Deep mutational scan, measured.
Amino acid sequence: MEVRTIKVFTTVDNINLHTQVVDMSMTYGQQFGPTYLDGADVTKIKPHNSHEGKTFYVLPNDDTLRVEAFEYYHTTDPSFLGRYMSALNHTKKWKYPQVNGLTSIKWADNNCYLATALLTLQQIELKFNPPALQDAYYRARAGEAANFCALILAYCNKTVGELGDVRETMSYLFQHANLDSCKRVLNVVCKTCGQQQTTLKGVEAVMYMGTLSYEQFKKGVQIPCTCGKQATKYLVQQESPFVMMSAPPAQYELKHGTFTCASEYTGNYQCGHYKHITSKETLYCIDGALLTKSSEYKGPITDVFYKENSYTTTIK
């Protein structure tokens, strides 16, 4: 009895394709271990004539594949690729409408935090270190965002349907971005203890939790000093293409032309909904596939993004 075979390709990165001759009487799992086709788990399936010449994702289970996976995804987590594939199996079914010149995501599976993050990423200057993220990001900007969303979920250790947080998501993504040249110098002034300067680099240099107003941050924000008295913390120097200011959701007025974009969060910790506000020729609110415009805006804002380049204080 002759062994019926077909020729397929296996890959971990969709760049390096490895030619395989597979036995049609055995499952993919018996031949390769966990195997995925377009995100779908085909591990328990036997090869079919229609699979001839198709590319299958496999887990990096030998040295060659491990090197290829690390170079593309910059992670050695053995569960990463499987999590990416199972997320992709959902995100490829989502709709990605162009809204006001940006790629958004039609609401499904509690994905409003991903839509808000995706919209924000198209408006701030950011370059990702893992080629996987950078490639998928370019495709997302062009309207094909399924891979990018699935990668975000995998890097953030999230599953489809789980509630997510924009600030946490951005923080994970910033860790995989090139923020080497970003720098922030802060000064804390206390009447009792004097003053202390701190220099922050990388992710810490672009994120701040405690106030939404970048102007206020430049002037000074009140913080408790270690001595128990009130101290003032203010920005001395900022070198970065953008800054992200966050605070627990509270009524906040966004003035046209003073910011790049913002995240609105309605609801409580267990259950809520994100919308995205962007400042173009007027203010726009993007909620999944829905767009509304207004000249002014007041609502429960939790993150505001500002364009920056270089700032030095005039406070002496």
Rank of each mutant, 00 (worst) to 15 (best):
E2S: 09
V3L: 13
R4T: 12
I6D: 06
K7D: 13
V8K: 04
F9D: 06
F9G: 04
F9H: 13
T10E: 05
T11G: 08
T11V: 05
V12A: 08
V12R: 08
D13I: 07
N14E: 15
L17V: 09
L17A: 12
H18M: 06
H18W: 06
H18E: 12
H18I: 06
T19A: 13
T19Q: 02
Q20R: 13
V22H: 03
D23Q: 13
M24D: 11
M24I: 12
S25M: 11
S25F: 13
S25I: 10
T27I: 12
T27R: 10
T27N: 15
G29H: 08
Q30K: 12
Q30M: 10
F32M: 09
G33C: 05
G33W: 04
P34W: 08
P34M: 08
P34N: 13
T35Y: 05
Y36T: 06
D38I: 08
A40P: 07
A40M: 13
V42A: 10
T43W: 06
T43S: 13
K44E: 15
K44C: 15
I45F: 15
I45W: 13
K46Q: 15
H48L: 14
N49W: 08
N49T: 13
N49D: 14
N49M: 12
N49Q: 12
S50Y: 11
S50N: 14
E52N: 12
E52T: 11
G53D: 11
G53H: 12
G53R: 13
K54N: 14
T55W: 07
T55D: 04
T55Y: 08
T55L: 06
F56C: 07
Y57V: 10
L59D: 12
L59N: 13
P60K: 00
P60I: 07
P60C: 07
N61V: 09
D62T: 11
L65P: 05
L65K: 10
L65C: 08
R66V: 14
R66Y: 09
E68M: 06
E68Y: 05
E68G: 07
A69T: 08
F70A: 10
F70Q: 09
E71V: 05
Y72V: 06
H74K: 08
T76K: 09
D77M: 05
P78F: 08
S79Q: 15
S79C: 14
G82A: 12
G82W: 13
G82R: 12
R83N: 10
M85A: 06
M85C: 06
M85W: 09
L88F: 11
L88V: 07
L88S: 04
N89D: 11
H90Q: 15
H90A: 12
K92T: 11
K92A: 10
K92S: 10
K93G: 11
K93T: 13
W94I: 04
W94M: 06
P97V: 12
P97D: 07
P97N: 07
Q98T: 14
Q98E: 14
V99S: 08
V99G: 07
N100W: 07
N100C: 14
N100I: 07
G101D: 06
T103C: 08
S104P: 03
I105G: 03
I105Y: 04
K106D: 11
W107P: 05
W107A: 06
A108E: 07
N111Q: 02
C112M: 05
C112P: 07
L114H: 03
L114N: 06
A115Y: 05
A115D: 03
A115G: 07
T116W: 05
T116V: 13
T116E: 05
T116H: 06
A117I: 07
A117E: 02
L118K: 03
L118A: 01
L119Y: 03
L119F: 01
L121K: 04
Q122D: 05
I124G: 05
I124C: 04
E125F: 01
L126R: 03
L126S: 03
K127L: 07
F128N: 00
P130Q: 03
P131Y: 01
A132I: 04
A132T: 04
A132D: 02
Q134N: 10
A136C: 05
Y137G: 02
A140C: 13
A140P: 01
A140M: 12
E144C: 10
E144F: 08
A145G: 10
A145W: 06
A145I: 02
A146M: 07
F148P: 02
F148Q: 01
C149W: 07
A150P: 03
L151C: 03
L153Y: 15
L153C: 07
A154I: 02
Y155V: 02
C156H: 00
N157W: 03
K158C: 01
V160K: 04
V160A: 07
V160L: 05
E162Y: 02
E162G: 06
E162T: 03
E162R: 01
L163D: 01
D165W: 02
V166S: 06
V166G: 01
R167Y: 00
R167A: 04
R167E: 03
E168Y: 07
T169R: 03
M170I: 09
S171W: 15
S171A: 13
Y172W: 10
Y172Q: 10
Y172M: 10
L173A: 02
L173N: 02
L173S: 03
F174C: 01
F174Y: 03
Q175L: 07
Q175H: 11
H176I: 07
H176S: 05
H176P: 02
A177L: 05
N178P: 03
L179P: 04
D180T: 10
D180M: 08
D180S: 11
D180G: 10
S181E: 14
S181T: 12
S181P: 04
S181A: 15
C182D: 00
C182T: 01
K183G: 04
V185G: 01
V185F: 01
V185I: 12
N187C: 13
V188N: 04
V188P: 03
V189P: 04
V189L: 09
C190D: 01
C190I: 02
T192I: 09
C193Y: 01
C193D: 02
G194F: 06
G194P: 07
G194Y: 02
G194V: 01
G194R: 02
Q195K: 13
Q195F: 12
Q195D: 12
Q196S: 13
T199A: 08
K201C: 10
K201N: 12
K201Y: 15
E204Y: 10
V206A: 00
M207A: 07
Y208L: 06
Y208F: 13
M209K: 15
M209W: 15
G210R: 03
G210M: 00
T211D: 06
L212C: 09
S213C: 08
S213D: 14
Y214I: 11
E215F: 02
E215A: 09
F217L: 15
F217V: 13
K218A: 05
K218E: 04
K218I: 04
K218C: 07
K219C: 09
G220H: 01
Q222W: 06
I223E: 10
I223Q: 09
P224V: 15
P224H: 13
C225H: 08
C227G: 01
G228C: 01
Q230P: 12
T232L: 13
Y234K: 08
Y234D: 02
Q238L: 01
E239S: 09
S240R: 00
P241T: 09
F242K: 01
V243D: 01
M244S: 00
M244Y: 00
S246P: 00
S246D: 01
A247D: 04
A247M: 07
P248S: 10
P248A: 09
P249G: 00
P249Q: 00
P249R: 01
A250M: 11
Q251G: 07
Y252L: 08
L254D: 03
L254G: 00
G257D: 14
T258A: 10
F259T: 01
T260R: 05
S263H: 15
S263Y: 00
S263K: 02
Y265G: 05
G267K: 08
G267S: 13
N268E: 15
N268R: 13
N268F: 11
Y269H: 15
Q270V: 09
Q270D: 15
Q270Y: 07
C271T: 06
C271L: 14
C271K: 09
Y274R: 02
Y274Q: 05
K275Q: 08
I277Y: 02
S279L: 01
E281W: 01
E281S: 07
T282I: 09
T282S: 13
T282F: 08
Y284Q: 13
C285P: 00
D287G: 01
D287W: 01
D287A: 00
G288P: 02
G288E: 02
L291N: 13
S294L: 15
S294Y: 14
E296P: 12
E296I: 10
Y297M: 06
G299D: 02
G299T: 00
P300L: 07
I301A: 00
D303G: 05
D303I: 03
V304Y: 01
V304R: 02
F305K: 01
F305A: 00
F305N: 00
Y306A: 01
Y306H: 00
K307Y: 09
E308R: 05
N309L: 09
S310G: 06
S310W: 08
Y311I: 11
Y311S: 08
T312G: 09
T313F: 14
T314C: 09
T314F: 13
K316W: 15
